[in-house]
């Protein structure tokens, strides 16, 4: 199965451990990781990616794509939750959209990105960190066990479903590193 996953952790440190553990599963042949990154959502709803690079051109792409993937991972969960709390969410949508833009507020202004950012809140709550990844897994147990061992929780959605999601951004791979790295926040 080709899936996108997000493993949610309480803090950056655990997410870093999760990233390395995920790539270790790849090294052992238990799963195949095609790309992964550590992200964090701060108390204001802003999402940032822990990169190994500080080039502004690279980070622009990072800021746009991450909200789209999180929104796509939320999928029906985000939509259902959004419907149940429809009143009073407008401020939250605005805050989240700004957060997704991160370093590049000028590029996060379409309705699609607002919606993706809104839904992303259901995957990655404020104050939490996560490992997001594109993986091929023959069974879900290795990643589920990893998450359980490190105190994380897993969101998982089939790659085909994510890519057909109306909110998905085709620029997604720009922020997923195709190998393990030491994450830093610029």
């Amino acid at each position: 199965m080709d899936n996108y996953i997000a493993i949610i952790f309480d803090d950056d440190s655990k997410a870093y451990d999760g990233l390395h553990a995920l790539w270790n599963l790849d090294s052992e042949g238990d799963v195949t990781i095609h790309g992964a990154a550590v992200i964090h959502r701060d108390k204001f709803g802003y999402v940032d990616v822990a990169t190994k690079d500080t080039d502004p051109g690279v980070r622009t792409a990072i800021g746009v794509g991450i909200g789209a993937l999180l929104g796509a991972l939320a999928g029906p969960i985000g939509a259902a939750a959004g419907a149940s709390i429809a009143a009073g969410t407008a401020a939250g949508i605005g805050a989240a959209a700004g957060g997704v833009a991160g370093l590049t507020a000028d590029v996060a202004k379409s309705g699609e990105q607002d919606q993706a950012a809104f839904e992303s809140g259901f995957v990655l709550p404020r104050g939490k960190s996560a490992v997001v990844a594109e993986v091929t897994e023959q069974w879900t147990a290795p990643i589920d066990d990893l998450a359980s061992r490190l105190g994380g929780s897993v969101f998982r959605r089939a790659k085909g479903d994510v890519r057909s999601d109306m909110w998905f951004d085709s620029d997604y791979p720009e922020y997923l590193y195709p190998y393990d790295y030491e994450p830093t926040y610029a």
Partner: peptide, 16 residues
């Protein structure tokens, strides 16, 4: 990056 991801897909296919 694209090449790396294609190779990653090839690795996944071989493992499968």
């Amino acid at each position: 990056r694209s090449a790396t991801q294609e190779l990653s897909q090839a690795v996944a296919a071989k493992r499968a």
